[in-house]
Structure formats: C-alpha cells, structure tokens
Design a protein around this nucleic acid. Sequence first.
DNA 1: TCATCACCTGGAGA
DNA 2: ATCTCCAGGTGAT
Length: 288
Amino acid sequence: MKLPFEMQEFTRINLDTTINSGQVFLWDKIDGVWYGVNGTEILRVRQNPFEIISSQKKPSDFFRQDDNIEKILNEINKDNLVRSAVKRFPGLRLLRQDPFQCYISFICSSNSSIQNIKQMLKRLCHKFGKETYFEGREFFTFPDAEKLTNTHVKDLLSCGLGFRAKYVKEAARAAYSGSIEFDFLKKIDYNSAKQDLKEIYGIGNKVADCILLFSLEKLEAFPIDIWTQRILQKYYSKKFSGLAEKSLTEKNYESIHKKILEYFGQYAGYSQQFLFKMERDLNKRNWL
DNA sequence: TCATCACCTGGAGA
DNA sequence: ATCTCCAGGTGAT
C-alpha cells in the first residue's frame, strides 16, 4: 500500500524550497518577502500569510496552483527514495515560467554554476530589460526576443555570457523570427517539441528538457544532468539495468528517459525535482 | 554512433 | 597573492 500524501503539510507551497530548487534564477528574498522576474511580469510573494501579487492585471499561474499535487505525489511515489525526498521537502513544486525567459536562462546554464547563471541573467535584464517600479521597488524585466535579436554579441559578452553569447543571440533570433514558437510547442507532444527545441544552436537534451518541464507544460520531461546522473547511478542502477552507468550519449539519454517514464509515470518531472533537490542539499556546499 | 576536447567566466580552494 | 580547478552541457572533430 502506498503512503498517501494528503496532509496539508505536503499540499501547501513552500516558497523557500521551491525557489531554491534550481528552477529559477531571478528571485530575491528581501525582508522575508520573495520578489521575482517572470518575463515582463514582476511577482511579489509572501509565505505567511500566503499571498501573490503580480504586476500584471492578469497574473500568470506561476506557482502551478492548478496542479493536483496530491495526485501527483501519490503517482510518483514509487520507492523509498522518492518517498523520503517528498517527506523531506514538503511544499516543493514545479513552476510555470515565462517560456522565452526559461529558454534563454537554460541556454545560459550550460557548463556554468548557479551563482554564475544568476549573474548573467541579472546583467541581461539590467542591460536589455525594461526598468519598472513595482511595490515601491525598482526592477528590470527580462528582455524580449526582439531586443536580444537586435543586440550585438559583444554586448552579450559584456554580461558575462562567454561562449553562450552566440547561442543566446541565435536562439533569440529563432524565437523572434517565429521559427520556434512556444505556444505551438505547448500544444504538440513532448517528443516533437523536444525535437524542435534541439534544432536550436546551444540546446541539447538536458536544456531542452528543462525548458519543456519548467515552461512548456511537459511534466514527463526529466532533465538528466550531472546530478541526476549521480542519482541514477547511486540508487537506480539495478532498476534501470545498468543504463545509468553508461555515458550520456544521444541514444542513451533517450533510452534512460523511456525507462524513467515507464517507472515514474506521466509526472516524472516532478520526481526529478524532488530527487535533484535532495541530492544537491545532501552535498551542501552552498549550491545556491 | 561514440569518445574527446575546447569553451567564457567567476568563485572557491589549494 | 597566484594558480588551478570546476561549474546543472553543447558543438565540433
């Protein structure tokens, strides 16, 4: 009999845990209140009492409050490891991010550290975003595709993007020209959307999965990075018949994902978030 | 198809 | 102080 997660402890969103789980980069806690940039939207979120204030008349459902978390938790609850991760991080949620920001953010994430990624994105906003005032504070929105398309690579370099600058420029152009269209990617199935994303210079399996999971409604996406790989090797090498021990080639990545999906089900991405959070926390060393 | 390697940059550790 | 090493990968041989 599976352990049912139905207590309020698990269904209430925990902001600290969720924001500090490596999904988002442009969030700051000021005087106990979280402020974040989501595309052109600025959010102000308080934990207790729980309150979300958006700069937009029509706020996005950034925190995925429409998710049936009880059902999801029970569905991914396949073994003791996931069970302990869910228990250890009650209130951890996936977020629904602005697709363009998410797309650029994870292109910037390659071979970088979270601290660095935050710096890069902050500078991108400061340099190319719109200055706005919200709740008595100054913010810079995330630049749009047009703005980033029309910027010089050297200006991207000045934001510290390094070799990612050319990726960002090209990716922005693809979004601006319409050769990649997020609303369309939301509608089509996971595999087709992933294939389209991987056409973009600078997007491979891992980055594509992050974009799909965090902004394009593909909850079966299961990004496999160095940490996920470690998790698979440490705890799942038997269940997944040694696949996790091999290097992460194109075919292997796909094969692993297939098994993961069979095992964890349609909400596999949620299981990834819990496992990732747990493994990173285990290895402390201020990873955020 | 697969294994190697270079890659910008900034921060941590030696 | 100065250096090495590495970080949520990807693209090119």
